[in-house]
């Protein structure tokens, strides 16, 4: 308790806006930390990795940031949608199955109940569980500010570990996911020391559409193997338009090694991460080839 109090000592003002405009006005004034689920913010603040700003804004009551719905050829997921809500959504399960799978691997029930997809994106961990499938699915972040709204593809949104291109005055209000083509299917693979409640050593989201004997619209995204979540574009190119035979799969797995830049840390060595990307990508591709 003492730690919490010490962390909160630097906060001069706590704001709970009821409308997006009100929230954007607070953000425009500067010096703001944004609180949604708090499952990343609070432990990081306590550990001294994040310094809380003088104004703490709790965005949990903004109606504009909620809901999962079809909109203009895509699916719009409000930034405040919790991981549990994603997992319980029939639309996500049926149309964004890669994302749904990731939610099933995400932390624990208690965390899933409060953690939000927007928070997961803004935390910008290279290992973030929803980031990898959303990147594979070609999603974009919707960033609002008093001056207007912009859309940034996730491939450009992440700029480094814990960093994104969101400006301090901007609020992530939603993530928009283009509806995958009919027949698109995929596999999310999270690899760690234990099957539950773990941070990925590496993770993979692999999706494609079967067209006769070949795979098209191949998407491969990797987590915890570079400063940001990344698409394995060279590996995608190897598989695109080809049958998922052993030679193609092996070539793609090899190509992926040129896409990734893993480091050694407390969870694994860079060598082991490379080995896992190669081995698990082969496994995932052969699985997708049979979906």
């Amino acid at each position: 308790m003492a730690e919490v109090a010490a962390v909160l000592d630097g906060i001069a003002r706590y704001v709970v806006p009821r409308t997006l405009d009100e929230a954007l006005g607070v953000l425009a004034a500067g010096g703001v930390s944004i609180l949604a689920g708090g499952t990343d913010l609070m432990p990081q603040a306590r550990a001294g990795r994040v310094r809380l700003q003088p104004v703490l804004i709790n965005i949990r009551r903004l109606p504009e940031l909620t809901g999962i719905e079809r909109a203009g050829g895509g699916i719009r997921i409000g930034a405040l949608v919790t991981i549990t809500a994603l997992r319980d959504s029939a639309l996500v399960r049926e149309r964004l199955h890669l994302l749904w799978q990731a939610c099933d691997h995400f932390a624990s029930d208690q965390i899933r109940n409060v953690a939000t997809v927007g928070g997961n994106l803004c935390n910008a961990s290279p290992a973030g569980d929803t980031l990898i499938p959303l990147l594979a699915l070609g999603a974009s972040a919707v960033l609002a500010a008093t001056g207007g709204t912009r859309r940034v593809p996730l491939g450009e949104f992440f700029t480094g570990p814990g960093r994104s291109c969101r400006r301090p005055e901007e609020l992530l209000v939603a993530v928009e996911v283009p509806e995958p083509p009919a027949g698109f299917a995929g596999v999310f693979c999270k690899h760690g020391t234990r099957p539950a409640l773990d941070i990925s050593t590496i993770s993979l989201a692999v999706g494609a559409r079967r067209d006769g004997t070949v795979l098209r619209d191949v998407r491969i995204a990797c987590g915890a193997v570079a400063p940001t979540p990344i698409r394995a574009l060279q590996a995608e190119a190897v598989v695109e338009g080809r049958a998922a035979d052993a030679a193609t799969i092996a070539a793609a797995a090899q190509a992926a090694l040129a896409d990734i830049h893993p480091i050694s840390d407390v969870r694994a060595s860079d060598w082991y991460r490379r080995e896992m990307v190669r081995n698990l990508l082969q496994r995932a591709l052969s699985h997708v080839g049979q979906l």
């Binding site: 020391t193 234990r194 099957p195 539950a196 969870r267």
Partner: peptide, 11 residues
């Protein structure tokens, strides 16, 4: 407990 991994229920 994030990086020191105790066995959890599923295992």
């Amino acid at each position: 407990f994030r990086d020191y991994k105790l066995v959890t229920a599923p295992e």
